[in-house]
Amino acid sequence: MSQRILLTGASGFVGAAVMQCLLDRGHQVIAALRQVPQTLDPRAEVFHFAQLDGETPWQAGLAGVRTVIHSAARVHVMNDTEADPLAAFRRVNVDATLNLARQAVAAGVRRLVFISSIKVNGEGTAKARPYAADDKPAPCDPYGISKQEAEDGLRKLANETGLEVVIVRPVLVYGPGVKANFLAMMRWLDKGVPLPFGAIDNRRSLVALGNLADLVATCAEHPAAANQTFLVSDGEDLSTTALLQRMASALGRPARLLPVPGVLLQWMATALGKKALSHRLCGSLQVDIGKTRSLLGWTPPLSVDEAFLLAARDYQEKTNK
């Protein structure tokens, strides 16, 4: 059934993919944006707001809306220059989220889907001991703490008002348009740079952009999603070595991987002040999506290799322009 849906962050990496998925499913989408990109799908309506904080007025954008999908956030920052990073994250990720939720309740919105983060669960897992959706949260940084506080506030509001809250915690998201470390990895592989990651025996859960968008749209529609928390991944966990090998294959390049032991890599990275990066490359972070599959009947529509090909083709098209 078609719904009128307000989507925040509709021009972002995740939000733009969610918007396309919703429009393709026949929903009416109101894209809540501070700046309207020229590439915005003309099928979407636009609600313009000036600033995302605890005072943002949402009433005009919420008129007739049945579901809100909240994708906008202050995202994880590697080298944060804020004097008080937690306060900065709270202004956007907690105060702005709960302000939107309270106004949604007043407008008669039935459901709010909140895109949170796996950082609410923690920073890593022992291999073969994945996080589950209902594990006790253990955030370790200001970003993860702010997301947990937003989740807690939304659940409290749901208990008080009857608003249906659905929480989705993605792992690392990749796909066309990806930036940061994943983009750097594709550049290294494309240029044939030898990399010291040929002997990493870890496991990482990833989620393709298309798979995440599909699940978020499902959470807006499915009756069983109400007041649940879901973890999302591609359903196949990879070592860093396997990830690089399969992405190189998608790029049509050989993977020049040197078999440097992971323990040595971590020691060297720590000595160079890159401990967090070494943890992401050598450590494990796995999630169990059994609840997501069983409760929603959801299966990731894209395989890892299909999703890698999409990311690789997008990268190559932009690089060869």
Rank of each mutant, 00 (worst) to 15 (best):
D288L: 07
R169C: 09
I69W: 07
R169E: 00
Q148Y: 05
R129E: 14
L112W: 09
A271I: 03
A87H: 05
A199R: 14
H48S: 04
R90Y: 07
L163S: 09
M1R: 14
G124Y: 02
V232A: 01
K318C: 10
C21I: 01
T39H: 06
P223Q: 13
D190E: 15
E82Y: 07
Q38E: 14
G9N: 00
A225P: 05
G26W: 13
G198W: 14
A269Q: 00
V29W: 01
Y174D: 03
D288M: 11
E317S: 09
L154I: 02
Q35G: 05
G124P: 03
T319D: 15
S11D: 14
G54T: 06
L100N: 11
T241V: 14
V216A: 06
R4K: 14
A50V: 06
A276H: 03
L281N: 04
A150T: 04
K119C: 02
G210Q: 04
I30R: 11
I5P: 06
R129K: 15
G210E: 08
R91K: 15
A276G: 01
M185F: 14
L265P: 02
L277V: 04
F47H: 11
L309M: 15
D190A: 15
K136N: 04
R280C: 08
L243Y: 03
S278T: 06
E160P: 04
M268L: 13
G198V: 13
W58S: 09
L244H: 06
A158V: 13
A16N: 13
